[in-house]
Design a binder for these strands. Structure first.
Lengths: 155, 155
DNA sequence: CCAAGGTCCATGCGTTTGCATGGACACAGG
DNA sequence: CCTGTGTCCATGCAAACGCATGGACCTTGG
């Protein structure tokens, strides 16, 4: 509303803020493209995220608590998402023998096949999209910086 | 479910996929910290996103269509979010004199004050979080890479 | 061994989201 | 001018979300 003094917080916010904002906006922009790409077919991106995360766990199994750390979703929402995926046969739920409170989510054969199929298409989609914007050296630099950022914030 | 051949799609997916995955995961991790930080007080992060985006527009006004490009939200959801924010007095909605279909969203005095107040706290939160993980040179490098990535994908 | 406190998951509930759609307007080509 | 096509925003509706909470189970200290 004021004619010009809007610049204060946006211009001189410092390199940390600018870095975060660039990170956020590039992630959002890229995500929209990847999400809109026709590679998900029988599942949603969020379901694939769960499958993908499970795929990186030993034996394709993980506690809900551990999935919750990776997937951007509240614990109740994740709980119900897993429930739906179990009904669809993508995962199975079994009690944790080592901890009576825990629920272990297991990738089924069907779920693993789907993970591979969608994963391959999705990866190709990523290569197309990221590949035109950054060369291989820049991709690696970006990866290093993001990994360092994530490691440094996990205090 | 297979004992070991799970590595295929995760290991050798290529630098582009690894870069995107690192970007995604660092963004999610950081976002959780920033979202959990007690700086939002009277509004939600998504509402702040709208205020912030409006703040960077000339005269603090923008079409819903333009907001939609920046904010990660479907058009109907954004439409209703703006509606709620208008009821709360943070923005005002008026028809676009230049385009009968359009709705212009205007930052009110109240909304702009709130934007500044939350923005300052949020920026401080970002500096704390990002600052401990990356030094200033790395922050700038990250910003450049992300900007280039976003520019390159906007084809 | 027991009590107190913490962790983990599931469920009730109100809110918000996305999809599909519709109405109003803009913008060409004939 | 006017008709067809495309754009922009709002709304009905079902699905999904987050918050608050509860019950079951671990864990620690006395």
């Amino acid at each position: 509303m004021s004619p010009s003094p809007r610049a204060e917080t946006t211009v001189g916010a410092g390199p940390a803020v600018e870095a975060w904002e660039a990170l956020l906006r590039s992630q959002v922009a890229l995500w929209r493209l990847l999400e809109a790409d026709d590679v998900w077919e029988p599942i949603t991106p969020r379901e694939y995220d769960v499958l993908h995360t499970l795929g990186r766990c030993p034996d394709g199994r993980a506690r809900i608590r551990d999935l919750h750390r990776e997937v951007l979703l509240s614990q109740p929402s994740l709980s119900r998402l897993v429930e739906r995926m179990a009904e669809a046969g993508l995962v199975a739920r079994e009690p944790d023998p080592a901890d009576g409170r825990g629920t272990v989510v297991v990738l089924t054969e069907t779920g693993d096949r789907l993970r591979r199929r969608v994963g391959a298409r999705h990866a190709e989609s990523i290569r197309r999209t990221v590949g035109v914007a950054l060369d291989e050296r820049e991709q690696q630099a970006l990866r290093l910086l993001c990994d360092k950022l994530r490691a440094g914030t996990r205090t």
